[in-house]
Structures are given as structure tokens and as C-alpha cells.
Design a protein around this nucleic acid. Structure first.
Lengths: 302, 302
DNA sequence: GTGAAAGCGCTAACAG
DNA sequence: CTGTTAGCGCTTTCAC
């Protein structure tokens, strides 16, 4: 009998099954940049958990575009997805509708403003403090900060950490030294260029994400500014092959894969047992000191 | 009336719609390593086309595991996906069932053995010839090759190109110099280590994918072999930030994003008009000469 | 235990 | 042209 079934090539129709059971086995994972290895690694963590639990991951790349994001959220709703993991860009309206619909939602990497949902973050402020403090300890006196869009929680928290580290060292905050860019490579490039034009040029920079760090490095190479002697640099989030880049990059590494796994497990729990208070899990970062922050000679008065 | 509908928060149920219309708006994209920026960029190309055409992309990461791949193919079938774009690992059995089911399929990056489907590839052999020839022209005399699993078409074709370039220069093929690894970073590391142990050590190496190139570089750095003087290196497929790595890496760049877009457009065509002969599109590669293949001094007799 | 029947929400076909 | 109805393939319920 079973063999007959197999021979006839019967496959049960999952769509009909989903309709009848009023649930699918699909998760929407909404991220803002699939070209960023940070998100890729996170997605891999999600995907590994999802697959073993029988779910498939629908990848949604919002490109930091609130409209695209809204479209994907709408799709997740009409497609009756079993759950959503989201690293949201700015506008929280669509996300709110999602949460209100009762769809299990987990926020990952970035907080979901105005929504009380399970959340997985890293210790952004604390990590930023450690990175900035490290530059100060290495003897850099005028440390700048290139951060992301103000509306994004990670950009704010990391800039806060930068400010706190300066404050702890009794250094006044110079607003001129804080540059808001777009979390992309080109943004980091432009920001670094602008900082180099300042009358009172910084001698180190803390960059709040990986792509912008690369952009900043490119700018420094292009202008012939020597790292780490003339300019120290520390980037938030590790970069694949950061150790092959010369000088190798000091980074504040995040447990990206683990971030994904944790979010996926929270979603699994939420799907299984609806009524419980949302929890927030904060994972630690790890300062990886390499060459780009290790000045060999002090120069000038600084 | 419409406002009433909106106020009641009606959303049409896409699952029911899919059942009724016997088709979904989902594409399965099956790739072998989501951690590889090559695939990421490709997926982005696919996704951009898919979204504008109203399709969503379900990301399936097979991790080069034929079982995982088979699971995903089965899921694509039972979920009635509108189409599949696949960069297959080895075993073609499951893929064959997929094609026979009548689901529109496009093979990307790698040929789908034993199945006559639309295919998008790059000029692997020709690209490999250009990379190997470039090493020869730069004055390296004993060029090795680190390639991928024999069952994967790209690994074979790139190794063929390597052999052809040697043959064109009247250099006999030394089987000892051809190392089959697994297309991963660690595989490249191990392969490079083995090549360095040879009695008659090569003075250059052509590596057939990006991750293995990074692994090989790591090995060389660790062992203190200077690149490009003691060892020239050219990698197939560009690496993000290849120009920040020191020495910067000479690569054979592939149009990854375009590869994705092309495959997506083929799939769109195939979904719209079923009965037409499958086509194969081959995109060109681009040799990007940087420092890792530019020996400054000849040394020894070589 | 096994088997029949109802119905999920939609759309395509058909009747008015 | 508008309104009604049948049925997609499955699961769950209920009757036997």
C-alpha cells in the first residue's frame, strides 16, 4: 500500500493542510541588509533552529527601506506565517499592526519601538564603552565616533556607550566628533572624510558597525593616513577576515550566530505557549584587540 | 464600504487563495552556503527581481549536504512553490523529481546534472585560464591548484581551465599540484599546508573559490611564507574588501548580483510561458589584478 | 476501531 | 453585469 502510494508519486498538499489548520510552517525573517555578513550569520543561526523544528525561513531584505519592510510585514500577515523575526528599520506602524494581529514576533538586534515583544540584543552600550575606553587606554586623545541613523536603537546605544566612556575619563563631548551616517560602507567612507577635514582632526575613531568601518578604512588608505599611528580605529561588529586586513582590525565582536539561534528559540517558545510575558535577552560582546588600535609611537602633544 | 472593510481590518487569506488557484507566490532558492558572500550577493539579485514581480524568496541553505537539499526540494514540492532556483550539491536524484514534477526550475552557478533546465553560469573554464595564465605571465614557474569537490561542476571546470592554461604554455600537468578540497575556508587552509609540504614546493597557487583563497592566505601568513614573492596567489571569485587585505588579493571576479538577476528573470519567463526550450546563459568573469600575484624579484633558479 | 462528512477562505464558473 | 455556488485537498469531528 505505502509502496503504491510512493509509486504513484503522491505528495500531500501542504497548502491545503495549511488552510485547514490555519497555520503555516513558514517564518518571515526581516532584516535590513542581506549584504552585511552580520545579518547573514544571524540568519544562519535562525535557519538552523528553524529547520530542525520543521519550519522554513522566508528571507525578507528590507534594505533599510520602511516601505519594503511594510510590504513584507503585510505579506507575512496575509500568508499566515507562523512567526516573524525582525530587525526593524524606523517606522514602527506596520510592525505594530503585526504585533496586534497576534502573530508571534521576536525582535532581533534592534528594539522594536512601541511594541512589547520578545527581544534579543547584544550589550551595545557596554560594548561601545569597552571599545572607546580601549582607544583611550591606548593613548589616543581625541576620539571621534561614526554612528548610524538616530532612529535605529543600535546606533543610539553605541553612541551612548562612546559618550559614557569619554565621560568616565573626564573628557568633554565634542559634538563635532560625532557623525551620523547610514550603516553602509559608503557612509563610513564619507564620514571619515568629513572627520579628516576638521580643523582639529581626531586621532582615533570608533565606528559603530562593520560596513562603515570598512568604508572608513578605505578612506584612510586612500588619503594615506597611517593606521594605527596617525589614526586609531575600532569597529563594532567583527568582520570576516578582519585578521587578514592590514593593519588587522580591532573589533567589538558580536555573537551573531548565537543571536539568531536565541531569537529562533524564543520564537519557537512563543508559538508553543502564547500567554507569557515577553522577555529580553542581552548577549555579551567581545573586544578583539588587533593592530588598528595599537599605536606604536606617541606623536605631537596630543 | 471600503473604509468599513479597512476598519474591520480585513486581510484576505493568501493561503486559501493559493489553494484555490493551485499556485503560490513563493520561490525556493536553494544554495549551498549562506555564509559565503558569493551566494549572498546572488540571492540579493534574485530577491530584488522577485520582489518587484510579487514573489517572495524562501531561503534554503543546504550546507553542501545532499540530505538537507533533498528535504528542501521536497518542501518546495509539497508547498507548491511557484519556482525553484538551485545551486545544487551533488546528488541529482531529488532534483530530478523536482524537474519531473513540472515545477519551473533554474540552475544557477552550478549545472544541474541530468536535468534539462534553464541555467545561468559564469565562464568558469575561461576565467580559470585567465587567472592561471596571469600567474604564468607574472613569472611563476610551478603553479598549483586548489579546487573543490569533483562532483561539483564549477570545481571541475575551473580545474580544467587551470590545466588548459598550463598545456597552452607547454607545461606538463603534475597531479601532485592539484588538490581537491571542500570549497570552505578550512579546506583551503589544509590544502595550502599540504602543498607547502611537497618536496618540490609550488611558487604560486590558483584557488578556485573565495573561501578557500582566504584559508590559503591564512596558512601562508601563519607559516610566514611571503606573498607574492615566495608564493603568488590568485583566487576565483572576488572577496569583499579584497583590496583591504594585505597584500591585496588578485581575483577572478564573478558578476554575482547579475547572476542572481538573470536567473530570476529566466524563472519569471519560465513561469509565464511554459513550453520553450531551456536556455543556458554564460556570464563573463573579470580578472582583477592586485598585489598577491605581482612578484617583485625572481628568486632561485625556479 | 474504521469511514463518511463538513468546512477552512478563497476564486472561477455559472446562473440570473 | 451582479450574485450565487461549487470545490481546491486537507484535517477534524462525528457517526457507526
Amino acid at each position: 500500500m505505502l509502496s503504491a502510494v510512493r509509486e504513484l508519486g503522491y505528495r500531500r498538499n501542504a497548502v491545503a493542510r495549511n488552510l485547514r489548520r490555519a497555520q503555516t510552517t513558514l517564518w518571515a525573517v526581516i532584516i535590513s541588509d542581506i549584504g552585511n555578513p552580520f545579518f547573514t550569520s544571524m540568519v544562519r543561526g535562525i535557519e538552523d533552529v528553524a529547520q530542525t523544528a520543521g519550519y522554513s525561513v522566508v528571507l525578507c531584505n528590507s534594505d533599510e527601506d520602511p516601505d519594503k519592510e511594510a510590504t513584507y510585514i503585510a505579506a507575512a500577515l496575509t500568508e499566515q506565517m507562523a512567526g516573524v523575526i525582525i530587525s526593524s528599520s524606523r517606522r514602527p506602524k506596520a510592525a505594530q499592526a503585526l504585533v496586534e494581529s497576534g502573530t508571534p514576533v521576536v525582535a532581533i538586534d534592534r528594539e522594536l519601538p512601541g511594541a512589547d515583544v520578545d527581544t534579543v540584543l547584544v550589550a551595545n552600550e557596554r560594548g561601545a564603552v569597552s571599545g572607546t575606553r580601549h582607544l583611550l587606554d591606548a593613548g589616543y586623545g581625541r576620539v571621534a565616533c561614526i554612528t548610524g541613523p538616530e532612529e535605529v536603537s543600535t546606533a543610539r546605544q553605541r553612541a551612548d556607550g562612546y559618550r559614557r566612556a569619554l565621560a568616565e575619563n573626564g573628557i568633554p563631548i565634542d559634538p563635532e566628533l560625532i557623525y551620523h551616517a547610514d550603516f553602509r560602507e559608503h557612509g563610513g567612507f564619507v564620514a571619515m572624510g568629513a572627520l579628516l577635514e576638521l580643523d582639529s582632526r581626531p586621532d582615533a575613531v570608533f565606528v559603530t558597525n562593520n560596513l562603515m568601518t570598512v568604508g572608513a578604512m578605505e578612506c584612510l588608505v586612500e588619503r594615506g593616513v597611517s593606521v594605527p599611528d596617525e589614526m586609531g580605529i575600532v569597529g563594532f561588529d567583527d568582520i570576516p577576515w578582519a585578521h587578514l586586513v592590514r593593519p588587522s582590525l580591532t573589533t567589538i565582536a558580536q555573537p551573531t550566530y548565537e543571536l539568531g539561534r536565541t531569537a529562533a528559540r524564543l520564537l519557537l517558545d512563543r508559538i508553543a505557549t502564547v500567554p507569557s510575558k515577553p522577555s529580553t535577552i542581552v548577549l555579551p560582546t567581545d573586544l578583539r584587540i588587533r593592530e588598528s588600535s595599537m599605536r606604536r609611537h606617541r606623536r605631537g602633544q596630543s
